[in-house]
């Protein structure tokens, strides 16, 4: 389970093109194994490396600049994480050390994948994201972001996601607390919608 997140001050990577898809975050060919690890080297591979195979860094990509090399917050553009639902995008970010993504809007699947992997998805207007500078402080308890200029910006996040991130909780465990309600719903549903239950279904 991810580390609980309360407050983090860290260098913030300015890579805020709109519609950065999960292929850009991690190209499909970088997902070499069937597991969830060994992905950090493939993070942003098509942008970060002039030659992704030889791993020659592209000096123009901000992550290759010394001041952002240890970035743990990503300042992104609108509709970030669109495209493929691959959770590898969140796994690669987390493995590299990212704990927050700040963007004007998120793809819904990527948003969920961030939350489940200890990365705080923060929605702020584009003008604000672009003026934050680096370092940035993300305070999940106070629900604020502080830019390099000291300005403080409030953000919103659903209680559910916030609790999960604050406590580093396993959502399956939380849900299993509802086991009686789930079982009752299933039992009623079998009566209500017998057609929805395939032969061999047990619950």
């Amino acid at each position: 389970m991810p580390e609980p997140f309360r407050r983090l001050t860290a260098p913030a990577l300015p890579f805020w093109q709109d519609n950065v898809d999960t292929d850009i975050i991690i190209p499909s060919r970088e997902m070499k194994g069937t597991g969830k690890t060994g992905l950090a080297g493939g993070l942003f591979a098509n942008r970060r490396y002039a030659d992704p195979v030889a791993r020659t860094p592209d000096p123009d990509f901000p992550l290759n600049r010394p001041e952002f090399e240890h970035a743990r917050i990503w300042l992104a553009g609108a509709n970030v994480g669109c495209g493929s639902s691959r959770e590898h995008a969140a796994w690669a970010l987390a493995e590299y050390g990212f704990r927050a993504v700040i963007a004007p809007s998120f793809n819904p699947i990527f948003f969920g994948n961030c939350v489940r992997n200890g990365i705080v998805p923060v929605v702020l207007p584009q003008e604000v994201v672009r003026r934050l500078g680096s370092p940035v402080t993300v305070d999940l308890e106070a629900m604020t972001v502080r830019g390099a200029d000291g300005q403080i910006h409030a953000f919103a996040l659903a209680d559910e996601a916030r609790t999960m991130l604050l406590e580093g909780r396993d959502p399956v465990e939380l849900t299993l607390k509802h086991a009686p309600a789930i079982a009752a719903w299933h039992a009623e549903d079998r009566q209500r919608r017998p057609w929805a239950w395939l032969p061999g279904a047990v619950a």
């Binding site: 969830k36 639902s85 691959r86 959770e87 969140a90 699947i109 969920g112 994948n113 489940r116 992997n117 559910e160 959502p171 399956v172 939380l174 849900t175 299993l176 509802h178 789930i182 299933h186 619950a203």
Partner: peptide, 17 residues
């Protein structure tokens, strides 16, 4: 569409949050 962790959640609980 969901992520892999959510798929695990759906398999293990028959539900999603």
């Amino acid at each position: 569409g969901i992520g892999s962790s959510e798929a695990e959640h759906a398999l293990a609980t028959g539900t999603l949050r």
